[in-house]
Each structure stands twice: as C-alpha cells, then as structure tokens.
Design a protein around this nucleic acid. Structure first.
Length: 508
RNA sequence: CGGGGCGUGGCUCAGCUUGGUAGAGCGCUCGGUUUGGGACCGAGAGGUCGCAAGUUCGAAUCUUGCCGCCCCGACCA
C-alpha cells in the first residue's frame, strides 16, 4: 500500500505541479507562455486602463538597471538629459508633414481642461465651457515640441552640436496591445540632437545605433543585427532609419532600437537656423533615437525557458539568492551565522545578493520561485553544508547544481556571474545562427518563413516587391544589414537583379 | 474596426440549461506537526455574483441595455 502510494505520487506529482504551478510550455503556446511569464514573474500586469500596463517593482527594477546602463552610455557619448512637456499643441505636430501623417492615427487628444459635477446625476462630466482653443496631443514622440524649443536654443554654430536625451512616457493609441511589446503608453528614452553638418548628424545616428547594439549584446546578452530600414519602414519624417533587430525564440524578429537621421526636415519645419563660420544662415541637421520598455519584452523572449525567466546577471535585480535549508529556529540561527559573513563578502564583491530567510515558504518553494524570477545564481545551504564547509551552487542558465567549498566562494561566484552572462549570450547567438537562412527561391522562402527565423534573401530594392512579399507571407524586411557582403543575385520574388541580401522575418 | 471568449472572495474557476437567498482549490490569519525541489492537519477571516433596468413572491441564474477586460485578425516601437 505504501509502495503504491509512493508510486502514485511519483507518477502524478510532476503533472500536478505543471497544472497548478508551472508555466505553459513555449513549444505549445508561445504567446501564452510569454503572457503568463510576465505576470507570474511579477514583472507587470494589465491595468484597469485598456492597453496600459502596471509595471511591478520587480519588472521596474530591471528597467531601472537598463536605464542606468544606457544613461551612462549616453553621458559617456556627450549627451545631457532634459525634460520636455507631455503635451504637444496640434499645430506643432502638423508642422512636419510626413511626421504628422505618420502619427495622426494613433494620437490621444486633450480637448478640455475641466470637469464639473454632473447636473443630471452623480459623477463628473466634461465642462463644455472648458474647451481648449487648440487641442493638445499627448506626445507619441517629441520631435515637434523639442524642435520648436530648439529654435530658441540654436543661434550659432557654437551652439552645436546640441546633444539632448529625455526619459519619458509616450502614448500611441494602439489597436492591439501586449505587455511590454506594445502598450498604449510606454516608457522610453528619446535622444534629440542638432548638428551643423549632415555628416556630423549621420555620424551621430550611427554612433547611437552602436550604443544600442553594444547595450543589447553586452548587457542584455542579446545578439542584434545592425542595419537600415527600407523606405517604407522608415520613421515618419526621417531621411534614414537605422535599427537593431533581434531574433526571439519563436523565430520572430523584434525591432529593439532605432536611430534616425532626420536631415533638415524638422529644422525647416520649425525654422531652426544657425549662423555658420562663414556668417551664413543654415538649417540645423537632426537625429533622434530611442529604446523603450519593449526591451523588457526582448529580454524575456530572448533567454527565458519553460521554468521561467532567465536574466543576464548584469541586469538581474537579484544576482544571487541564498536559501537556507533548515528545521526550526535553532538550525536557522546556525545557518544564518554562517551565511551572514558570506552575504557581506558577496556584497563587498559588488554582487547584489538576497538572503531569503523568510519562514513562510519552504526551501523547495523558494527554489521554484527564484527560478521563475530568473535569479542567475542560487546558493543553498543546510546543516549538511555546515558540517562539510560547503554550499550548493545552482545556475539558472543551465539549471545545474554543484556542491562547493565555502573557501573562496565570493570570487568563484563573481566569475560564475560573468560566465553566465557570456553563456546566455552564446546560447542566443547559437540560436540565431541556427535560425538564420540564406534563401534563393520563392518556394524556399515561403516554406522557411512558416518555420520562422531570419531569412537572408535578395531584394530588388523596390517598395512594390517588398509590399507583395509582405502581403503573401507576412514577412517584412527587417533591415538592410550593414555587414552584408556585396553579392550579385536576383530578387527572390521578382527575379530582378540585386546587389546584396536583406533580412526578412515575421516581426512583433 | 471585425470575429471569438470572459466578468462570481486576493487568484483560478464551479454553480446558470431547469430561479429558492453562494461553493471548491490556491492564497491569507491563528495553532500545531514539518523542512536538501512548489509540505500537512485543525480552526478562522474574506463575496453589493461587472453595472442598470425589467420579469417574478423570490434573480448569480431569465430578458433588455450598458460597461470593462482578454484572445485572434487588419495598423504599429
């Protein structure tokens, strides 16, 4: 009977665990896996406002780490932070025509500035007498308000370059939203620079794309392809849009950052002129560049598995968690006595470490919880370890465990974190290589796009072909990659001549 | 904007077909036993059943209207 019971529990335990506690599997329903993971890992939740999310403390902590790293990189490249208004007068938004058209269909509009008690009942109504003379647009991006301001800041070539960044929220009224990947309101940074020459502005556009690529690879451990957007994928109002594109585990692409060369379009629209060294008036040259909380989505989808989040150590709010395994307060006290100096050692080594000595959950529960939350390293310590002078080291990225001597453990952990950082980058890089395909026939293209991944194919450079391919396969040209080698070929769809391959994929 | 689904304790959901005054599991509180991979026992707390009107002696349940959210498509960082 006992044996039967054991056998029974053995048989049913994993299934029960999956049903009650586990995540949906990536292989079964990727999008459900993603949604559940975001919620269960305590990153964010849907709010009472349609399309808007609440970013929870754990999720926000990751975003703050991203912000910090990016902000340092912006400062290191000579930029300063500033802040511009949330509201953009409609007339400003209208000034740059293409820009206006591009954003018109997704703008939230403020028409009134006052509410009053409802004379016919309960609640408040919009006071009709408080109608704004000119509507205010909740910024979908800030080029308009910023270039209107720059007009007053820029007189001379000596005022240039003007290198400004702002951390802000923006609103784009999306029809369909997904936590982090596409929300009606999102957080981002937008850099807006003004330069004396086209050359300088183009260099800036490239420089910031480089910053984004470095951030993605070194901090997020996510390999990206750098390239240029086609004309049809370009930012509204830009001469050229550069981007970094990443490949998610389901084989879809995610645009993870963009950097735009805006030419003199905004300077002309907002009349931003400067006097050059020859005492002649010239329009300033512009760039803008941004990354958003969408990067959170990228981070999640690039590395995480069916057990939960996998965070790169450099962005993990908790890098190391220590879990005591004990019976009763006495044992815990003994363990804590050993853990406390270890905790201090790790902290002194610059590691963000948490000692979870809470007694409301057992160790097994904690193991699962910290795996779900993607904590890179877990240290387990029980009485057995106290006797042996050891500690159990568990890696989140490989899900492996080993017992190690406590001697020199801080140094070991420090190295281990570096190793995990590079391991998950390598894993993502391998995944991308294995899911990047050079395709030369239309038949192969159609077959491969169904399977996902980046497709490198020849393109004749026309918007018509690009559009046809999009209609027939839902694949878009993610970018014209910088590192593509010149190679004669024929367009995969039209058969017309082409000089290089571009990156196609289905995208988020 | 189309198509689908859902709204019942904090969470996941049952109850609705056939109206009779609200239930389970998880979580929470207290007590006890436990603790090397999501523990167990006992006792509790917690709900205007999305909102409004209607039908009825009586509505979570039937009718009508409204609101909200999620998922799938067209648009997009």
């Amino acid at each position: 009977m006992l044996l039967f019971k054991i056998a029974l529990s053995f048989l049913f335990l994993p299934r029960k665990n999956f049903m009650s506690k586990g995540l949906p599997k990536r292989s079964e329903n990727y999008s459900e896996w993603y949604n559940e993971l975001v919620k269960r890992a305590d990153l964010a939740e849907n709010s009472a406002v349609r399309g808007c999310m609440v970013i929870k403390p754990y999720g926000y902590a990751i975003w703050e780490k991203m912000q910090r790293a990016l902000d340092d990189m912006f400062k290191a490249t000579g930029h300063q932070n500033a802040y511009f208004p949330l509201f953009v007068p409609k007339s400003f938004l209208e000034k740059e025509e293409e820009h206006a058209e591009g954003f018109a269909k997704e703008c939230a509009v403020v028409t009134h500035y006052r509410l009053k008690p409802n004379p016919d009942g309960k609640g408040l109504i919009v006071d009709p007498s408080a109608k704004l003379e000119e509507e205010l647009i909740v910024r979908p991006t800030s080029e308009a308000i910023i270039w209107n301001t720059y007009k007053n800041w820029i007189q001379s070539w000596r005022d240039l370059p003007l290198l400004i960044n702002q951390w802000a929220n923006v609103v784009r009224w999306e029809m369909r939203t997904r936590l982090f990947l596409r929300t009606a309101e999102f957080l981002w940074q937008e850099g807006h620079t003004a330069h004396a020459t086209a050359q300088e502005a183009i260099e800036e556009t490239n420089r910031m794309l480089g910053v984004y690529a470095a951030f993605a690879e070194e901090w997020m451990a996510m390999p990206v392809i750098k390239g240029a957007k086609t004309a049809s994928e370009r930012f509204a109002g830009a001469e050229e849009t550069l981007c970094i594109e990443a490949l998610m585990q389901d084989g879809r692409a995610l645009q993870s950052g963009t950097s735009h060369f805006l030419g003199q379009n905004f300077a002309k629209s907002f009349d931003v002129k400067f006097v050059n060294k020859e005492n002649q008036l010239e329009f300033a040259w512009a760039t803008s560049w941004g990354v958003s909380t969408r990067l959170m989505g990228a981070l999640i989808m690039a590395h995480s598995d069916d057990q939960g989040l996998v965070l790169p150590p450099k962005l993990a709010p908790i890098q190391v968690v220590i879990v005591p395994i004990y019976k009763g307060a006495e044992d815990l006290a003994k363990i804590s006595e050993k853990v406390n100096p270890l905790f201090e050692q790790l902290k002194a080594a610059g590691i963000s470490v948490k000692y979870d000595d809470s007694d409301n959950q057992r160790s097994g529960w904690k193991f699962a919880e910290y795996e779900l939350k993607g904590v890179p390293v877990r240290l387990g310590i029980g009485l057995r370890d106290l006797e042996n002078g050891t500690i159990e080291v568990a890696r989140r990225d490989t899900l492996t465990k080993e017992s190690r001597s406590l001697d020199g453990i801080a140094k070991y952990i420090k190295n281990l974190l570096d190793e995990i950082q590079s391991n998950i980058y390598q894993k993502a890089l391998t995944f991308r290589s294995e899911n990047t395909f050079a395709v030369d026939s239309w038949e192969d293209f159609k077959t491969q796009i169904e399977k996902g991944g980046f497709i490198l194919a020849h393109w004749d450079g026309t918007a018509e072909t690009e559009e046809k391919i999009k209609q027939e396969t839902k694949a878009t040209i993610r970018c014209i990659p910088f590192d593509a080698k010149a190679e004669e070929g024929t367009d995969v769809y039209s058969g017309k001549p082409s000089k290089q391959r571009v990156v196609f994929a289905r995208a988020y």
